[in-house]
Design a binder for these strands. Sequence first.
DNA 1: AAAGTAGTTGACGTAAAGGTGAAGTGGCGC
DNA 2: GCGCCACTTCACCTTTACGTCAACTACTTT
Lengths: 141, 141
Amino acid sequence: MTGHTDPNRLFTITELSEEVGATPRAIRFYEAKGLLAPKRAGQNRVYTYRDRARLLIILRGKRLGFSLALIKQYLDLYDADPTRKGQLPHLLRGSRQRIAELEAQRLDLEVTLDELREIEQMTLDAMRRLGVPEPDAGAGS
Amino acid sequence: MTGHTDPNRLFTITELSEEVGATPRAIRFYEAKGLLAPKRAGQNRVYTYRDRARLLIILRGKRLGFSLALIKQYLDLYDADPTRKGQLPHLLRGSRQRIAELEAQRLDLEVTLDELREIEQMTLDAMRRLGVPEPDAGAGS
DNA sequence: AAAGTAGTTGACGTAAAGGTGAAGTGGCGC
DNA sequence: GCGCCACTTCACCTTTACGTCAACTACTTT
C-alpha cells in the first residue's frame, strides 16, 4: 500500500510530463522562466518530488488563468526563507495581496456560476412545459 | 435617486469604454469577434443597456482567465431562444458543462487560497516568535 | 467652407505562452 | 564503432488579445 509515494523518487522529464500531462517542451519552458530548477545528471534534468509539486502548482495556476510571471511570484512565497527576518513583512504583504485578489476572483466565479445555474433552471422549466424529455444523466458516447 | 439607471439610455463607444474601463479599440475587437453587435446610427456604433451588460460579462470572463471564444459560447447561452424547442437540450448540455468546469476551477481556487492562508499564518507566527512588529492594516500610500 | 472633434476601417506591430523542427550529444546494445 | 533513442540547445512559427498609426467620414462650430 505504501511505497508508491516514495519521497526519494526521481523523475526524468518525460516521466514527469506524462504524469502531469504537460509536454517536455513546456516543462523546459517553465524552467527557462525561472519557475523550476531541477538538478542535472550530466546534462539531463532530474526532478524530485518537490519539483513535481511545484509543477503541479504551476499547472493549477495556469488553469486559474494566471500568467507564468504571477505564478512565479506565488512560488517565491513558498520559497521565502522564514529564518530571514527581513523577508517576513514582505512575505506577509505578498500573501495577503494574493489572497485579496483571489477572493475577488472567487466572487466573480460565484456570480457566473449563479447565472449559469439560472440558465439551467430556466431551460429545465421550458423543457418541462414543452414536454421535451430530459436526456438526464446519460452514460455518454 | 432614480433616473440615472434609465433603461433606454444609449451609449457611444467612448462613453461605454470610460464607464467600464476598456478601450474603444478593445470594444470594437469584441465586436469583430462576434461578442457584441451594437446598432449603428449611420456609421457610428450605438450601445444599449443590454450591450453594456454583455460587455460587463465579457470583462468578468476575462478576469476569470477565459478566452474570448469561450466567453462567446457563454454569451450564446444567454441568447439562445427558449421558444425554439430544438435548442433546449443543447442549451442544457452547454450550461451544465460550463457549470462543471467552473466548479472545478473553484476547487483549484480554494486550494490555492488555503495554501496562501497557511503561508500567511506561518509568517505571522514566525514574526511573533522573532518579535517583528506587525505593520497590521496600514493605510499605506 | 474650413477646422475641429468623434468615430470608422484597415494594416501592421507586439507580448505571452508555448509548438515545431533542425542539428548536435551521450550512452546502450551488439 | 554503428545505429538508435532520448536528451539537449537554438531559432523560428503560431495564436490570442489587443495597441498603434494612418487615412477617411460625418457632424458642428465658426
